[in-house]
Write a protein that binds this DNA or RNA. Structure first.
Lengths: 218, 218
DNA sequence: GTCTATATACAGATAGAC
DNA sequence: GTCTATCTGTATATAGAC
């Protein structure tokens, strides 16, 4: 095998530059508001070059998703997947924290995926597919509980989608593009810890709260 | 005062036809995918007439929202607003059912509002404003509980937004454009009752479930 | 007020030189 | 492979007759 061609290396560099620029632009302006020319301009490349690498904006987004999966896969493979017992608040919090972390670390891509799914319209089913795909792990944990004999509030797929949708909506609405930016006017800034603690508590014990069950000596 | 001008009446008729057509089109194709010409065609009106009534698609959506508020206001005023005790599963269910019913009855407008908010991008804060606006009543009920001395999982505004976001996401993903249409392939059809029961149970007692608190005779 | 016809604007995508 | 320049398609909005 000969040395890698200079042109091939340059191509890879350009493709990476385009993807990096896309992540920046998506985070700042949102996926739908970002034009292909915004991306090429931010990457200091010509418009025509874009189509040498991607068939369009949607395909670029899919590439970003693939990158994310590859990265997440590597991360998760290190730790392995012991089936969590989500009825344990500590383990639930851990799971929610993992999901929230993915949202935070890949905010641009995640929000872009949701914008894209919503732009397809309700009838397309794209949003449901997105929810189902992003909550498959959560669903499996719930099915594990169900197989164990626990009484769940309902169908595991539905519960998982509900929780995932809540997480996604809050991430979209609350995660700042720039973590160091000042809080947007008129909007309370919630810390990650505050959000996680609220969701964990809500999903563990519900609104009735642990107070609803007196520590009876049975 | 003289009789209402014929032209004025015709204008009102056209405006109503445009709004009705918009609701249909939004429900079928989604807000973002619906073009002004789609609306005028569905209403059997000329493109130019549209701008006699609305400055643009966004303004039309605001008009639909105003109509919805007027209608909802009338409905709610009949019943009055006794502060609900959301720690009571029955009252929580009732509240969720009311919210879900609004989503269902105004699916086209509600989904359009969320599409519009998401199209504005995450940085705009539009989605958070939407969530906050649509869950103000829920927030008040939670504040009522807080004032009463109950320990909530967190900030009432945040909890309300989380629940509202979950509801909105599920409504967008699961509510069919045509209630009588066959279930979309590969997608389980959930009944309203099933969804409400699942959410009520989840939000009342959480994943730990009522099983976590034995029915002690106190 | 409503219509037909048209102007404006711009995003997406391509052609051909280098 | 990258660039500049351009073409095409399409959505928005307006002009002017009726």
């Amino acid at each position: 095998m000969g040395v890698m061609g200079v042109r091939k290396a340059q191509a890879a560099e350009t493709e990476e530059a385009l993807k990096a620029a896309a992540r920046r632009e998506f985070a700042e302006r949102g996926y739908l508001n970002t034009k292909v020319t915004d991306i090429t301009a931010a990457a200091d490349r010509a418009t025509g070059s874009f189509y040498q690498h991607f068939a369009g904006k949607e395909e670029l987004l899919q590439a970003l998703l693939a990158d994310m999966h590859a990265q997440a896969g590597a991360t998760f493979d290190d730790g392995g997947h012991p089936p969590h017992d989500l009825t344990d608040p500590a383990q639930l919090r851990e799971h929610l924290a993992a999901g929230w972390g993915v949202m935070r670390d890949n905010r641009a891509v995640m929000t872009a995926l949701f914008e894209s799914a919503m732009a397809a319209g309700p009838a397309s089913g794209a949003l449901w597919e997105r929810l189902a795909a992003d909550t498959s792990m959560l669903r499996e944990h719930l099915e594990f509980l169900q197989d164990r004999g626990d009484a769940l509030p309902g169908d595991p797929t539905l519960i998982a989608a509900a929780i995932g949708g809540m997480l996604a909506m809050l991430a979209y609405a609350l995660l700042p593009a720039d973590p160091d930016a000042p809080a947007p006017a008129g909007q309370t800034a919630y810390s990650d810890a505050q959000i996680l603690s609220t969701l964990t508590d809500l999903l563990s014990h519900g609104l009735a709260g642990p107070a609803a069950c007196p520590p009876a000596p049975q």
